[in-house]
Amino acid sequence: MAEQVALSRTQVCGILREELFQGDAFHQSDTHIFIIMGASGDLAKKKIYPTIWWLFRDGLLPENTFIVGYARSRLTVADIRKQSEPFFKATPEEKLKLEDFFARNSYVAGQYDDAASYQRLNSHMNALHLGSQANRLFYLALPPTVYEAVTKNIHESCMSQIGWNRIIVEKPFGRDLQSSDRLSNHISSLFREDQIYRIDHYLGKEMVQNLMVLRFANRIFGPIWNRDNIACVILTFKEPFGTEGRGGYFDEFGIIRDVMQNHLLQMLCLVAMEKPASTNSDDVRDEKVKVLKCISEVQANNVVLGQYVGNPDGEGEATKGYLDDPTVPRGSTTATFAAVVLYVENERWDGVPFILRCGKALNERKAEVRLQFHDVAGDIFHQQCKRNELVIRVQPNEAVYTKMMTKKPGMFFNPEESELDLTYGNRYKNVKLPDAYERLILDVFCGSQMHFVRSDELREAWRIFTPLLHQIELEKPKPIPYIYGSRGPTEADELMKRVGFQYEGTYKWVNP
């Protein structure tokens, strides 16, 4: 592979701008107003304001973009700056750019259920340069409990009458099928589907988006991507930290609602779906819905739930269990780990287990898709061969690698495990991989909904998990304890083995 010439960040961002501006969906010269509902909250200060700053800094926003914060707290732009700027990672050389960014910011205080507050917000936006005809993007960085009041008031008082209007809704989209349907029906009564952007930030990850290209742009994968060759698929999300004093919020939802029903299920769809007619948003989402419709409700015998306990040999936070978090209700049975087996009941995947695993306070930070292939028929190497695996590593250190057998150097035919490896950090030294939120917010500006969740996708996802969630809430089974920093409950490994996964433990990928 030829040595790549190092590029400056300015040059890299210039390439990104060229890609972005050559499309006809990006209205570079139009006025846009980006409204952050819930501007005083954690999500706004840690993710949304920093993301908008990065896009502005790199010249990736339309030229005439204004940012308006809205929340109940009586704040000023200076207050917003004070709480969000520490997350910007701005350099001293960017000081003038930073001043320009905050000059485009404003803030309006108001209630979430008060019509007069929204009329005041609308008047404020109209007073901005060309504000009355601007395109408006409303980001709901809010708890779902206020979605209905907020969307109703936005629709009645704050819509642009000339430009387009788009609304970005953060997960969780309800707690179960019934609450999700209620919320979807409410929002759909106010906005068209092409105006609604239900954001799952995992769909903005580079390697998640790469799944489609790997599958449908490489001839070698087509013939082997089926039940005849693939023994099982494992989708993993692991965090090495616990709730760390923020367990009160987590306890309301648990690990299945927080990660599995959305992030992991979306990745499953991209692995299992048929080739779409095109890369058009609805063509892709149509195929994802077909996959979900082929999955039956989760069966309790295919589920393992766990909850982390303190590690007596650990240090600091590792010595504390979930129930030691003062914000967690006493005696909570909320799971911090889950392993679930699903089956896609169609011709391509009949009988292939899709194993979804996620948890907190585990032994490493990792998100990946792992396809394990069947054993080689007619073994001539005296059971020395391990199964081939194709691994798409989402985070950290984005990579695609194939675990395969090669001859060990020497005189004899002794096979050993090795890999074919594409590590993004080595291959793409001159490429700026956008943060997931950067990519998705740019998608909203461009009107691309491919990486957002459609209402029928959402409904099918909740259909699969709601009976299990209701059973857990009714019966309150005690989750299996696992030690902070471990791989999780051993019962999860036993479940995976029972459905056909072979864990060798003899080879570990190392970032080159």
Rank of each mutant, 00 (worst) to 15 (best):
L7H: 15
S8V: 07
R9N: 15
R9V: 15
R9Y: 15
T10P: 07
Q11L: 10
C13W: 07
C13A: 13
G14M: 15
I15A: 06
L16N: 15
L16D: 15
R17N: 15
R17K: 15
E18Y: 07
E18C: 07
E18L: 09
E19R: 15
F21S: 14
G23K: 15
D24A: 09
A25Q: 15
H27T: 07
Q28R: 11
S29R: 15
T31G: 10
I33T: 10
F34I: 12
I35H: 02
I35A: 08
I36D: 04
M37D: 01
M37Q: 08
G38R: 05
G38I: 03
A39N: 02
A44P: 01
A44D: 00
A44R: 04
K46W: 03
K47Y: 10
K47M: 04
K47V: 01
I48V: 09
I48H: 03
Y49H: 00
P50H: 04
T51W: 03
I52C: 08
W53C: 01
W54C: 06
W54I: 10
L55D: 07
L55V: 02
F56C: 03
F56N: 01
F56E: 00
R57I: 05
R57Y: 00
D58Q: 08
D58G: 06
G59F: 05
G59E: 07
G59R: 09
G59V: 01
G59W: 01
G59P: 01
L60F: 12
L61K: 02
L61M: 07
L61V: 11
P62A: 08
E63M: 13
E63C: 07
N64I: 05
N64V: 05
T65C: 12
T65P: 06
I67N: 00
I67R: 04
I67H: 05
V68S: 01
V68I: 13
G69Y: 03
R74L: 14
R74T: 15
R74W: 15
L75G: 07
T76D: 13
T76K: 13
V77M: 14
V77I: 14
A78I: 08
D79W: 05
D79C: 07
D79Y: 07
I80F: 08
I80W: 06
R81T: 07
K82E: 10
Q83M: 12
Q83N: 10
S84H: 09
S84K: 03
E85M: 12
E85L: 10
P86V: 12
F87V: 06
F87L: 11
K89N: 14
A90K: 07
A90G: 08
P92C: 14
P92I: 12
P92S: 13
E93V: 09
E93D: 13
E94K: 03
E94D: 11
K95D: 09
K95P: 03
L96P: 15
L96D: 12
L96H: 14
K97R: 14
K97H: 06
L98A: 05
D100H: 13
D100Q: 15
F101Y: 06
F101T: 03
F101G: 01
F101W: 04
A103Q: 15
A103L: 14
N105M: 11
N105W: 11
S106L: 12
Y107H: 07
Y107M: 09
V108I: 14
V108H: 11
A109W: 15
G110Y: 00
G110W: 01
Q111W: 09
Q111Y: 12
Q111M: 11
Q111R: 13
Y112Q: 02
D113C: 12
D113P: 08
D114L: 11
D114K: 13
A116Y: 15
A116G: 12
Y118F: 14
Y118A: 07
Q119W: 08
R120C: 14
R120K: 13
L121G: 02
L121T: 00
L121M: 10
S123A: 14
S123Y: 14
S123H: 15
H124D: 12
H124R: 14
H124P: 04
H124S: 12
H124M: 09
M125C: 12
M125W: 00
L128T: 13
H129L: 14
H129G: 15
G131D: 12
S132T: 15
Q133D: 12
Q133E: 13
N135A: 09
L137G: 08
L137D: 03
F138G: 02
F138Y: 12
Y139I: 04
L140P: 04
L140R: 01
L140E: 03
A141F: 00
L142W: 00
L142F: 02
P143T: 04
P143R: 03
P144L: 02
P144V: 02
T145Y: 06
T145R: 05
T145L: 06
V146Q: 14
V146I: 14
A149Y: 14
V150L: 08
V150W: 03
V150D: 04
T151N: 08
K152Y: 11
N153L: 14
H155V: 07
H155E: 12
E156P: 08
E156N: 14
S157M: 14
C158V: 13
C158K: 01
M159S: 14
S160R: 08
S160T: 11
I162A: 12
I162Q: 13
G163S: 11
G163Y: 08
W164K: 07
N165C: 14
N165V: 13
R166K: 11
I167E: 00
I168L: 11
I168T: 12
V169F: 07
V169D: 01
P172H: 00
P172T: 02
G174S: 03
D176L: 00
D176R: 04
D176W: 03
L177F: 09
Q178C: 14
S179C: 05
S179I: 03
S180Q: 05
S180R: 04
D181V: 06
L183R: 01
L183H: 02
L183G: 03
N185H: 12
N185Y: 13
N185P: 02
H186E: 12
H186I: 09
I187L: 11
I187E: 02
S189R: 13
S189E: 14
S189P: 09
L190P: 01
L190Q: 11
L190F: 08
F191N: 04
F191I: 05
R192Q: 13
R192I: 08
E193Y: 01
D194K: 11
D194N: 13
Q195H: 08
I196V: 14
Y197R: 01
Y197I: 02
I199N: 07
D200C: 01
D200Y: 01
D200W: 03
D200F: 02
H201C: 03
H201I: 03
G204H: 01
G204D: 03
G204A: 03
K205T: 03
K205A: 01
V208F: 04
V208E: 04
Q209Y: 05
N210A: 09
L211R: 03
L211S: 00
M212L: 15
M212I: 08
M212N: 02
V213C: 14
R215A: 02
F216T: 02
F216R: 04
A217C: 10
R219Y: 06
R219E: 04
F221R: 01
F221E: 00
P223F: 03
I224K: 03
W225S: 02
N226C: 09
N226H: 09
D228T: 09
D228A: 09
N229F: 05
N229A: 08
N229Y: 05
I230R: 01
I230Q: 00
I230P: 03
V233W: 01
V233T: 00
L235T: 05
L235C: 10
K238D: 04
K238V: 01
E239F: 01
F241A: 05
F241W: 09
F241D: 04
T243W: 02
E244N: 12
G245R: 08
R246Q: 03
R246S: 00
R246G: 04
G247W: 05
G247R: 05
G248L: 05
G248T: 02
G248M: 05
G248P: 02
Y249G: 03
Y249N: 00
F250M: 00
F250H: 02
F250T: 02
E252A: 10
E252M: 11
F253L: 02
G254S: 07
